[in-house]
Each structure stands twice: as structure tokens, then as C-alpha cells.
């Protein structure tokens, strides 16, 4: 099978969840569009250009692209230095390497200094079957605890593309999870509008609220449709920005439903579920809560469909959690 142009190599092909509609390398193409308008945008990678879709930008703007080799501290530090000379650097690697290897550089170089750096992190959560070394399962918890940093987990190709333009225009450090290669389209680009710090109510319902982020929102919508067929009306609130957290929208929704399910492509400690639970308690809301996400383990390697079942991360698992919390 040949690999289409602009698509990540076949060894680590994306899982598209059987989506009816997909888009290819939405980040790379969106970055090119943003860079055509803004000559200050530059790109960097740590030997993962082909695997983070930034090769699309590198092909188009070779003079504005810097290969940093397998050196993530240097990648992030160099991006901060470029930002300090007025550039808008987009630095790509995998989530595990950005957050585990270059944490201090993100915290001090980018966040403390409010450098205008965009860190684009591939293979979030269970989007690779490569095992614990490559699955970025706790990055949101790490990133969300850093002051000044904006943290984004987009849902699909539409949102990856929109968010790329929005963060290019935003002046400040951003950590964004990347869906790469062939990416499902869940949200309608004509009606959806990504905004930093704003959760979006994608579906309303009085029985249970599913509060989701990242690719889990697609599964949450599937779960909501399945629940509706059995008479349970679920709301789906998509929280693409993990930080700053849209407390108002989340609290307003929780105030009018008896129970909540959170769904995240991340361990259930320290991510979206924890943020929602914190808020519920702080706001004095009496809701029953179930968290769908990766349990407190390093995951095996294997095919994505196998892993999604193994770690109960699919749409049926979200629906099951909703039924359980409704009981």
C-alpha cells in the first residue's frame, strides 16, 4: 500500500476510529497557511519532522525550518531563544519527549519567561501502539501544573487546524497535543470555532453530562448517540483547552445535571477528570462523577483498537460509565 503525500509513514499510521471523514496532516497544512500570512512563524523539530506533520511546513519554508536533532532540551531552549528575537516558533516532538525530557525548559524557558513558544506534542495518550516509552499518558497533568502555560487537547482535524491558527495569533507559551497523519473529522468547520479557554457544548441533555477533551470527544458523541437510543439524554461538553480551564461553562453544566462522566485520552490522575472534580467540590456542587481515561498504569504495546478495549477507552466504555453513574 502506498502512502499518500503529506501523510505520516505507514509504520506508525494513525488510528482513525473508523471515521467517515478524515483530513491529512491538518497541523502541517494549517501551519503553512498561518506562515503564509505571518513571516515570523518558524518551525523546529527534534528528528521527528516526518512524524509530526511539520515536514509540510519544512518543504514549503526550508529557510524558516530548523532541525535540532534528537535533543529535546535544545529544541525547546532554542525555540525560546527564537521567540526572544521576535519569532513565533512551533517546535514539534512527541508528548513523552517534550514533557518528560524537556520539562525544565518548558517550565523555565517558555512558561516563566512567557516566551511566545508553541510546543506541538505528537502521540498523546493511546494514539500509538508503541508502548509506555512513546505513549504520552500523563503530559496534561504535568503541563497543566505549570503557571503561564496554555494547554490544548484538540478533538479532530478541524480543531487541530483551527487551533494552529489561533495559537499562532496568541502571544504566549502554548503546549498543544497533536493528532497527526490521517486525522478524523468530527466537528463541522463551518459551525465550530475553537477559542482558547472556551469549552463548547456540542450536545445538550438533562440526564448526564459527558465532559470530554481531545479525541475522546468524538467517542463521547458516539456514546451520547447510543445512550439516546435507549432513552438517556446526555450533554457533551468539549473542553479543548485544559488550561486556562473554562470553569464557568463546566460549573454551569454540572449545576443542571445529576451526574457527570469525564473522558480523556490521558491517565485519570491529574488531567481533565481531576480538574472537573476539583471544580465540583470548590463550587459546592453535588454531582456523581465517573472518570473515563487510562488507569494508573503504563500501557502495553499493541494495536490501537486492542489497546482502546484493553484500557476501556472506547465509546461503549463512556456509555457504560454513564449508565453506571446514573444508577
Amino acid at each position: 500500500m502506498s502512502t499518500p503525500r503529506g501523510v505520516t509513514g505507514s509504520i506508525l499510521t494513525s488510528s482513525t476510529d473508523g471515521a467517515a471523514q478524515t483530513a491529512t496532516a491538518p497541523f502541517g497544512h494549517a501551519l503553512v497557511r498561518a506562515a503564509e500570512k505571518n513571516p515570523r512563524i518558524v518551525g523546529l523539530t527534534a528528528d521527528l519532522g516526518k512524524y509530526t506533520d511539520i515536514h509540510v511546513f519544512a518543504d514549503k519554508f526550508p529557510a524558516r525550518f530548523f532541525q535540532m536533532g534528537m535533543a529535546e532540551q535544545s529544541l525547546v531552549g532554542c525555540a525560546c531563544g527564537l521567540a526572544r528575537t521576535g519569532y513565533v516558533p512551533f517546535a514539534t516532538t512527541y508528548a513523552v519527549f517534550a514533557t518528560r525530557r524537556a520539562y525544565d525548559f518548558i517550565a523555565i524557558g517558555a512558561a516563566l519567561g512567557r516566551a511566545n513558544v508553541k510546543i506541538i506534542a505528537g502521540l498523546p495518550g493511546l494514539t500509538t501502539g508503541y508502548g509506555g516509552t512513546h505513549q504520552g499518558i500523563e503530559d496534561l497533568a504535568l503541563m497543566r501544573s505549570i503557571p503561564n502555560l496554555t494547554v490544548i487537547d484538540p478533538c479532530d482535524a478541524t480543531e487541530v487546524a483551527q487551533a494552529t491558527q489561533v495559537i499562532a495569533d496568541y502571544d504566549g507559551p502554548v503546549y498543544m497535543r497533536l493528532l497527526r497523519g490521517i486525522v478524523p473529522v468530527v466537528l463541522d468547520e463551518k459551525t465550530h470555532r475553537f477559542e482558547i479557554g472556551r469549552a463548547k457544548l456540542l450536545r445538550d441533555g438533562p440526564d448526564v453530562a459527558i465532559i470530554s477533551t481531545g479525541l475522546m470527544t468524538g467517542r463521547a458523541l458516539e456514546a451520547a448517540a447510543e445512550l439516546a437510543s435507549t432513552g438517556v439524554n446526555a450533554a457533551v461538553l468539549h473542553v479543548a483547552t485544559i488550561k486556562p480551564f473554562d470553569r464557568e461553562s463546566v460549573a454551569a453544566l454540572m449545576a443542571r445535571v445529576p451526574c457527570v462522566v469525564t473522558a480523556e485520552n490521558h491517565v485519570v490522575t491529574g488531567g481533565l477528570g481531576s480538574a472537573v472534580a476539583d471544580l465540583a467540590v470548590e463550587a459546592g456542587l453535588r454531582v456523581r462523577l465517573r472518570k473515563v481515561g487510562i488507569p494508573d498504569v503504563f500501557c502495553e504495546s499493541g494495536s490501537i483498537p486492542y489497546l482502546v478495549r484493553r484500557y476501556t477507552m472506547g465509546a461503549p466504555d463512556i456509555a457504560a460509565a454513564a449508565r453506571e453513574v446514573l444508577r
Binding site: 518558524v42 529557510a63 531552549g77 525560546c80 531563544g81 528575537t85 525548559f105 524557558g109
Partner: peptide
């Protein structure tokens, strides 16, 4: 261990300009 990494970025940016 931070200063030189950022200095590399600054030097790249100044050269690009």
C-alpha cells in the same frame, strides 16, 4: 544548562533577521 540552548535560538533568530 538553559542559557546556551536559548542563545542558539537567539543567534538563529538574529541571523534570520
Amino acid at each position: 544548562g538553559h542559557g546556551l540552548t536559548q542563545s542558539v535560538g537567539m543567534a538563529l533568530g538574529l541571523r534570520l533577521d
